[in-house]
Deep mutational scan, measured.
Amino acid sequence: LKKVVALYDYMPMNANDLQLRKGDEYFILEESNLPWWRARDKNGQEGYIPSNYVTEAE
């Protein structure tokens, strides 16, 4: 899975979204639905995130 790091905080707009915290790492599960990607956080929560809020992890 592709790993990304959040560049900004993101508060979910609806139940399908995943909250982002700046500096945290996330795994990308699906990239087909631009600009929204399906992601999983370190706690196993899954949801959609804005792809322009993250960058690929080193």
Rank of each mutant, 00 (worst) to 15 (best):
L1V: 09
L1I: 11
L1T: 07
K2N: 04
K2Y: 09
K2Q: 05
K2M: 08
K2A: 04
K2P: 05
K3P: 04
K3G: 03
K3L: 10
K3T: 08
K3R: 14
K3D: 01
K3Q: 06
K3N: 04
V4G: 02
V4M: 08
V4E: 01
V4D: 00
V4I: 04
V4L: 04
V4A: 04
V4R: 03
V5S: 04
V5A: 03
V5K: 08
V5M: 08
A6G: 02
A6D: 00
A6S: 05
A6V: 02
A6I: 01
A6R: 00
A6H: 00
L7N: 04
L7I: 10
L7M: 09
L7D: 03
Y8A: 09
Y8K: 11
Y8P: 00
Y8Q: 10
Y8T: 06
Y8S: 06
Y8C: 14
Y8M: 11
Y8W: 12
D9I: 02
D9L: 02
D9G: 04
D9F: 03
Y10E: 00
Y10V: 04
Y10K: 04
Y10M: 04
Y10Q: 03
Y10F: 11
Y10N: 02
M11V: 13
M11N: 11
M11C: 14
M11T: 14
M11L: 13
P12E: 03
P12C: 05
P12K: 06
P12W: 02
P12T: 05
P12M: 03
P12Y: 02
P12H: 03
M13W: 07
M13D: 09
M13P: 07
M13A: 11
M13Y: 09
M13T: 13
N14T: 11
N14I: 05
N14L: 07
N14P: 02
N14K: 12
N14R: 13
N14M: 09
A15Y: 10
A15D: 12
A15F: 10
A15T: 12
A15E: 12
A15R: 11
N16G: 15
N16Y: 13
N16E: 12
N16T: 14
N16R: 13
N16W: 14
N16A: 11
N16S: 12
D17Q: 15
D17H: 15
D17P: 02
L18C: 02
L18E: 00
L18F: 04
L18T: 01
Q19I: 08
Q19D: 04
Q19W: 09
Q19R: 13
Q19T: 10
L20E: 00
L20T: 02
L20S: 00
L20A: 01
L20D: 00
L20W: 01
R21S: 08
R21V: 15
R21N: 10
R21E: 06
R21D: 05
R21L: 09
R21P: 00
R21G: 03
R21M: 08
R21T: 14
R21I: 15
G23H: 05
G23P: 00
G23I: 01
G23F: 04
G23E: 03
G23R: 03
G23S: 04
D24W: 14
D24T: 06
D24H: 14
D24L: 08
D24E: 15
D24Y: 09
E25M: 14
E25I: 15
E25Q: 10
E25F: 15
E25S: 11
E25C: 13
E25Y: 15
E25R: 06
Y26K: 00
Y26E: 00
Y26Q: 00
Y26W: 01
Y26I: 05
Y26N: 00
Y26S: 00
F27W: 15
F27A: 05
F27P: 00
F27R: 04
I28T: 02
I28F: 02
I28Q: 02
L29T: 07
L29H: 03
L29A: 03
E30R: 06
E30Q: 09
E30N: 08
E30F: 09
E31C: 13
E31S: 12
S32M: 08
S32P: 08
S32T: 12
S32N: 12
S32Y: 08
S32G: 13
S32V: 08
S32K: 08
N33R: 10
N33H: 12
N33I: 10
N33A: 12
N33V: 10
N33D: 14
N33C: 14
L34V: 09
L34R: 11
L34H: 15
L34K: 13
L34T: 15
L34W: 15
L34A: 14
L34F: 15
L34Y: 15
L34M: 12
P35W: 15
P35A: 15
P35S: 15
P35G: 15
W36M: 15
W36P: 05
W36Y: 15
W36E: 05
W36H: 08
W36L: 11
W36N: 07
W36T: 08
W36I: 10
W36K: 12
W37F: 09
W37V: 14
W37G: 02
W37M: 09
W37C: 07
W37Q: 06
W37D: 02
W37K: 06
R38E: 03
R38H: 08
R38V: 08
R38N: 05
R38M: 10
R38Q: 06
R38Y: 15
A39L: 07
A39Q: 00
A39T: 02
A39N: 00
A39D: 01
A39R: 01
A39H: 00
A39V: 12
A39C: 07
R40E: 04
R40N: 02
R40S: 05
R40P: 01
R40F: 06
R40I: 10
R40Y: 06
R40T: 05
D41R: 02
D41C: 04
D41V: 01
D41I: 01
D41S: 08
D41Y: 02
D41F: 02
D41T: 05
D41P: 00
K42Q: 11
K42G: 08
K42M: 14
K42L: 10
N43Y: 14
N43D: 12
N43F: 14
N43E: 12
G44H: 05
G44M: 06
G44C: 06
G44F: 05
G44R: 04
G44L: 04
G44Y: 04
G44N: 06
Q45P: 02
Q45S: 10
Q45K: 14
E46N: 04
E46L: 05
E46V: 09
E46P: 02
E46R: 03
E46K: 03
G47K: 01
G47M: 02
G47V: 01
G47L: 02
G47N: 00
G47D: 01
G47P: 00
Y48I: 07
Y48T: 07
Y48H: 05
Y48R: 09
Y48Q: 07
Y48A: 05
Y48K: 06
Y48N: 09
Y48S: 05
I49R: 00
I49E: 00
I49Y: 01
I49F: 06
I49D: 00
P50T: 03
P50D: 06
P50S: 05
P50A: 04
S51E: 04
S51Q: 09
S51A: 14
S51C: 12
S51P: 06
S51N: 06
N52V: 09
N52S: 15
N52F: 11
N52D: 12
N52Q: 10
N52M: 12
N52L: 09
N52A: 14
N52I: 10
Y53P: 00
Y53H: 07
Y53V: 04
Y53K: 05
Y53G: 05
Y53C: 09
Y53F: 11
V54F: 04
V54K: 01
V54G: 01
V54P: 00
V54L: 04
V54D: 00
T55W: 08
T55E: 10
T55S: 11
T55F: 10
T55L: 10
T55G: 09
T55P: 01
E56K: 11
E56S: 13
E56Y: 14
E56Q: 11
E56T: 12
E56G: 10
E56W: 15
E56R: 10
E56P: 14
E56M: 13
E56N: 12
A57T: 12
A57I: 15
A57R: 11
A57G: 10
A57P: 12
A57M: 13
A57D: 09
A57N: 09
A57Q: 11
A57H: 10
E58V: 15
E58H: 13
E58G: 14
E58S: 14
E58F: 14
E58K: 12
E58Y: 14
E58W: 13
